[in-house]
Measured scan of single mutants.
Amino acid sequence: HNLTITQGKLFFHYNPKLCLSEIHKMEEVSGTKGRQERNDIALKTNGDQASCENELLKFSYIRTSFDKILLRWEPYWPPDFRDLLGFMLFYKEAPYQNVTEFDGQDACGSNSWTVVDIDPPLRSNDPKSQNHPGWLMRGLKPWTQYAIFVKTLVTFSDERRTYGAKSDIIYVQTDATNPSVPLDPISVSNSSSQIILKWKPPSDPNGNITHYLVFWERQAEDSELFELDYCLKGLKLPSRTWSPPFESEDSQKHNQSEYEDSAGECCSCPKTDSQILKELEESSFRKTFEDYLHNVVFVPRKTSSGTGAEDPRPSRKRRSLGDVGNVTVAVPTVAAFPNTSSTSVPTSPEEHRPFEKVVNKESLVISGLRHFTGYRIELQACNQDTPEERCSVAAYVSARTMPEAKADDIVGPVTHEIFENNVVHLMWQEPKEPNGLIVLYEVSYRRYGDEELHLCVSRKHFALERGCRLRGLSPGNYSVRIRATSLAGNGSWTEPTYFYVTDYLDVPSNIA
């Protein structure tokens, strides 16, 4: 807008934040220059609390790290170098490059900038070799853009010569660093050979998330399962459950009422301010606690030095998902009996873990797994792929695949051998790939016309006998059925096997 004052003059007093240069501009645009008398524009009460600059400061050096910015700028000295009290560095987070010096300023003089007072450097006698002032900004957020400017702080001049310097606002972004852990990993099994893994992005990506790394490792069953005799009275049979499938998407929606109208769909109840505040506090606490764990609990591995020492970490090797089922080394339970199943799973520490690289999504279907087997899954978020990966501390989750139908069934015939004193040795093959492992066998036998009897055969007993022995049988026709019990439950009964026990007292003698 054009402003013209045809008559009258300007009068400025007691404006401590208004620089004289701005008042002189007002004289020019209003056409009143030359009308004012000496005392109409006070030299001592206008701009006496402001830094009124008329020179431009330029930054000469900028260096960044993930949490620091090192700045240096060209030296500046007023005509009387004693008038320079120091520099004021202003900075704040700036997602967009549209910041002005006066953003967030209120009537009390406060604003949204963080201000650092910096002492002037030592003055050199040689004007050509003056030290460049600077400042190291610490405690910054990774991968965050900051708006920065600097200006001088000078003393009051009796001659009211307006001098000083100020830089333009520059924008500097800190470097990326390792992201925080992925949030809320959930693993479920939808079949006997697959596990579905879902997660949420890290709360602090500290860069642009480029991919996720998912490692999985087959877990050995508890050692007590191999040692305890679950045929003993009072000892509860062990059981394991597989990871249940995901709930429906509708039930997972946030901010939804727990109660549904019987007449149909209901609208979600909005969260109160107290609920939102509580969630923010919980989120802040979780982030602080995660940072504490990362800094205190997890110790970084030592990389190899120039002395030739090897990095103890196993090298990563990509495998196809079809090879995942046989990740671990199978060892027989008892070496003397080769027909026992290889369900003991000690994992070799030198073995390469299978892994998958996930790009542009937060889910993965891990296939080719062994049925009813526990897996430990390790999830890392990465925001750099080359020249070397920059990934987060791992988040861990466990899951067990679903049982395989008929995996616990005894394959092959049940054979028998009759000894003296009416002892019958029953023999059968253990299931080759049971659900988890076989903890015991149930032997059901009966003599024709009598009630059915049951015998429990422990895992250890089966390994020693290759089956079991029935003792003290009365003469007669017998039928026997056997079924295995694994961590997933009972298998199917075998087809009945028949044998006849004679009275050993009636056996004919070869003595003449």
Rank of each mutant, 00 (worst) to 15 (best):
V457S: 01
F285S: 07
N477W: 10
N477D: 09
T328V: 14
V334L: 14
D506A: 08
N208R: 13
R481E: 08
E247T: 08
V331M: 12
V297S: 01
S474E: 07
T241L: 10
R370Q: 15
N339Y: 10
L440Q: 06
E452V: 07
L437A: 09
D261N: 12
Y498M: 15
V365I: 03
S474C: 12
L237F: 11
Q256P: 08
R218Y: 12
Y478V: 02
M427E: 02
T415V: 14
L470N: 03
H425G: 08
L470W: 04
A309Y: 11
E350T: 10
G234Q: 07
P245M: 06
E465S: 13
E362N: 09
G322Y: 06
S444N: 07
T340S: 12
V397D: 01
T502Q: 07
D222M: 09
D250I: 13
H371D: 08
S274P: 04
K361C: 05
R301L: 03
L213M: 08
R316L: 15
E452N: 12
P332I: 13
H461I: 12
E247K: 06
C269L: 05
T415S: 07
P413K: 12
E224V: 10
R459C: 04
S262R: 09
H371C: 08
V214G: 13
N383E: 01
S223Y: 09
Q219D: 04
L321Y: 11
C266D: 07
V296S: 11
T386E: 11
S320V: 13
T333S: 04
H425Y: 09
A336W: 06
F289L: 03
R301Q: 08
V414D: 00
F215Y: 14
L470T: 02
R319V: 14
S251A: 10
D323A: 10
V423D: 13
G322W: 11
S283E: 05
Y500R: 12
F246R: 04
T497M: 14
T373L: 06
A394F: 09
P508R: 15
D229W: 02
E249C: 10
E420P: 14
T307K: 12
D506K: 04
T494M: 04
A309Q: 12
T340E: 14
Y292K: 02
T401H: 00
H211I: 11
L277N: 11
S203A: 04
S284E: 01
Q429S: 14
L505H: 09
S283L: 12
E465A: 12
E265H: 08
E378K: 11
P300L: 02
P403V: 06
I438G: 01
Q256Y: 08
S509R: 08
S268D: 07
G322P: 13
L505T: 14
V297R: 02
F372G: 04
T386L: 15
V480H: 00
T347P: 08
E290Q: 04
V331H: 15
A463C: 10
S315K: 13
I438A: 04
E217R: 15
P338H: 10
C456E: 13
E388C: 15
D250R: 04
W216I: 11
M402T: 05
R286P: 04
Y478D: 00
G306Y: 07
V423I: 10
P300Q: 10
A463F: 11
R240F: 14
E217C: 14
L470Y: 02
F246N: 14
Y445N: 02
P346K: 15
M402Q: 11
K236I: 05
V424Y: 13
C391R: 00
D503E: 11
F226M: 06
G374L: 13
T307I: 04
T288L: 06
V439S: 06
L437K: 03
Y212C: 04
S474Y: 11
G264V: 12
F499H: 01
Y292G: 00
E281W: 05
A381I: 02
